[in-house]
Design a protein around this nucleic acid. Structure first.
Lengths: 192, 192
DNA sequence: CAAGTAAACTAACAACTGTTAGTTTTTTTA
DNA sequence: TAAAAAAACTAACAGTTGTTAGTTTACTTG
């Protein structure tokens, strides 16, 4: 791991501000002030406000894509794959509590990289859909509407960024495990 | 039901734009242009940009609060209450596909009404938490971490606005029922 | 310690922001 | 059809926006 550059600090600070008010509502003067400098000085380190957003979002999106690829080709059951996806989201979100807000809410302000982002996202959804469909075919997963199961799981995982910061006494391992239980088994008490 | 005023049209159009780019990125000139008029003309109908956001968010928040109150005091099981909450979200979201985006993402730009909104929201979460806790106590709901169950359900329901527009061939009744199944029973196949 | 580089600064820009004032046009009502 | 009300307009404002140019200060390195 290399040393953190000034650019990295700016991006980290920006992510924090973007989470609070959204990309559009944060001005370069806000960001500069949070960094203890003047707005013009930021441009010694970054090319534009856009570039900051791009750095935050694209690196996260690629991290998810890469993580899911590994899970996809591993030789485990469908349910286990879903459990690994839960871990992936919990881990990335735990380490990027702020950036995840931009990924979820400010992707539409990407300009040149918007199409690339949308491609990564739809591929991600498609791969996860495939994992679920496989599980249904193999009889591991109930034969309910696949879109609804996909949506329900993904909504929960994508919202983790709102919730992990409030409960960060829970370690990632325990959180992943308990979350998997709820997502996979549901909440109703079974009659054993 | 009364006739739709020009103000209502403006708010509806604003909600649509707010969903696409977020409150901060939509200018009064954008809104005016979408309405086929000049920015200044908007002010014959509305007091400020803020007021539009307030109208969108507060009316929705109050609708949820009221809906949950009715469910809370009805004499049904905890699981049934949760199923009613699912219906509540599906119905309100189906009828407010655009406004729900503001409720989820732009509430922090409320000014005078921010505290009121935060109060409604935390009361809502607390009441739902109570429904779950009751269910656990009565043995209807598994004895897992209540916060995780609350978070998982609420994340899914709060994300409906992203998903309903894409699948609106599904009618609200069917969607509510299938979503309840997934949330309550989970996705794994039981050994009958 | 000299030279080079990194990182801050001041000043300014052109475009855009929400909003107001005052006026004209269109629609409704008596 | 005249008067009143509703709804649009033009023009402009004061403040804010992202960004650039040019300069000064601080740190690193040979």
């Amino acid at each position: 791991m290399k040393a953190e550059t000034r650019k990295d600090e700016i991006i980290k600070t920006a992510a924090k501000l973007f989470k609070e008010k959204g990309f559009s509502a944060v001005t370069m003067r806000d960001l500069a002030s949070a960094m203890g400098m003047k707005a013009a000085s930021l441009y010694n380190h970054i090319k534009s406000k856009q570039e900051i957003l791009k750095e935050i979002i694209i690196s996260l999106a690629e991290e998810f894509t890469h993580g899911l690829e590994l899970i996809q080709k591993s030789d485990i059951s469908s349910i286990q794959k879903i459990e690994e996806v839960v871990k992936l989201h919990v881990n990335i979100t735990s380490q990027n509590k702020f950036g995840m807000a931009s990924l979820n809410n400010d992707w539409m302000h990407l300009e040149e990289k918007l199409d690339y982002y949308l491609e990564l996202r739809s591929n991600y959804e498609e791969e996860l859909r495939q994992i679920i469909a496989d599980g249904v075919k193999k009889g591991e997963i109930i034969d309910e509407n696949i879109e609804i199961m996909l949506f329900s799981i993904l909504s929960t995982l994508r919202s983790l960024y709102l919730w992990i910061p409030k409960k960060d006494y829970l370690n990632p391992e325990k959180l992943s495990q308990e979350l998997s239980t709820v997502l996979v088994k549901g909440i109703n008490k079974k009659i054993d």
